[in-house]
């Protein structure tokens, strides 16, 4: 099976749901016209990133009226977008929804919310505690939001649970201007390379652009293919929408050539954890 994914490297307006919903619909319609089957937006794309106390004002249920138009559009194109989710427990979560066929099929709550240095996510948001592994028409799909991608244990576990398509919406600020590329780009490159090369997944990494106060988001969204490497690479700093092709036959081909998945033995991990716990 081959399908087309649109990487929406956009600049959401901080705290302006109305503007952002309209921007999502425009982007999704454009992607649909271009023949995309799936469009992926960055982290917190519907709400904006540096919300602080606006978090309370913009938190919504995934099935809220404001997102109904977007959900309707998902009858024609699957959509992965970020928002502040109002949990059933009344807690705001940094979440990403997956809509398809006119329904919200899945919501992932970010598990690892950076709270150090320039980041203060846990000050305002609750922590998700579940890996997101769910079946879609694109195969077994997983979602990791920004920092989640930097936790190899979780990404490896998702691979072990059969994930073939990993969606990685992000809001990564630029830093490290000393080299040919930004320092943070190299870090992300390692994570993408490791997920595709060792775990045999397609990864759709979509990072936003623009500034929230002094934080500048650098873009460089990418599609990482287990066989072809980085097949789509968006420019730095620029708002763009790019299309990439996923050929799912690459997964089996890669796993045959480098059968790490076949060799994987979770019993070793289980045994190590149990031995450690009992010692």
């Amino acid at each position: 099976m081959t399908y087309t994914v649109a990487l929406a490297q956009v600049n959401p307006a901080c705290g302006d749901l109305e503007y952002n919903v309209k921007m999502h619909i425009d982007q999704a319609e454009r992607a649909l016209e271009a023949g995309a089957d799936l469009i992926v937006f960055p982290e917190l794309s519907l709400s904006g990133y540096l919300l602080k106390d606006q978090t309370l004002d913009v938190m919504r249920r995934a099935d809220c009226l404001e997102f109904a138009g977007l959900c309707e559009l998902s009858r024609h194109i699957a959509i992965c977008a970020g928002f502040v989710e109002e949990g059933e427990d009344g807690i705001p979560y940094n979440s990403a929804l997956f809509m398809d066929a006119g329904e919200v099929c899945h919501v992932h709550r970010k598990m690892y919310l950076p709270t150090h240095g320039m980041f203060e996510e846990l000050k305002f948001l609750g922590r998700g505690r579940e890996l997101s592994v769910f079946d879609t028409r694109f195969g077994r799909t997983g979602i990791v939001i920004c920092r989640d991608l930097f936790h190899p244990l979780e990404v490896s576990t998702m691979a072990a649970l059969g994930v073939e398509l990993l969606l990685a919406p992000s809001a990564m600020p630029a830093r490290g201007f000393g080299g040919e590329e930004l320092g943070i780009e190299q870090t992300v490159g390692l994570a993408l390379g490791s997920a595709s090369t060792f775990l045999g997944m397609f990864v759709v990494y979509v990072n936003r652009v623009g500034f929230d106060d002094g934080l500048g988001f650098y873009g460089r969204s990418a599609l990482s293919d287990p066989v072809g490497g980085i097949t789509v690479s968006a420019p730095r700093f620029e708002a763009v929408q790019l299309l990439g092709t996923v050929d799912t036959s690459h997964i089996a081909r890669h796993r045959y050539q480098l059968p790490i998945r076949r060799e994987e033995d979770l019993e070793i991990v289980r045994h190590a954890l149990e031995t450690r716990r009992n010692s």
């Binding site: 630029a174 201007f177 930004l182 500034f211 002094g214 500048g216 730095r236 700093f237």
Partner: peptide, 19 residues
Amino acid sequence: LALNNTLVEDYLKRFIQEE
């Protein structure tokens, strides 16, 4: 302390425009 000035220039111009 050396920086990639091409990147810095691009970034700071965008910062001024957007802010």
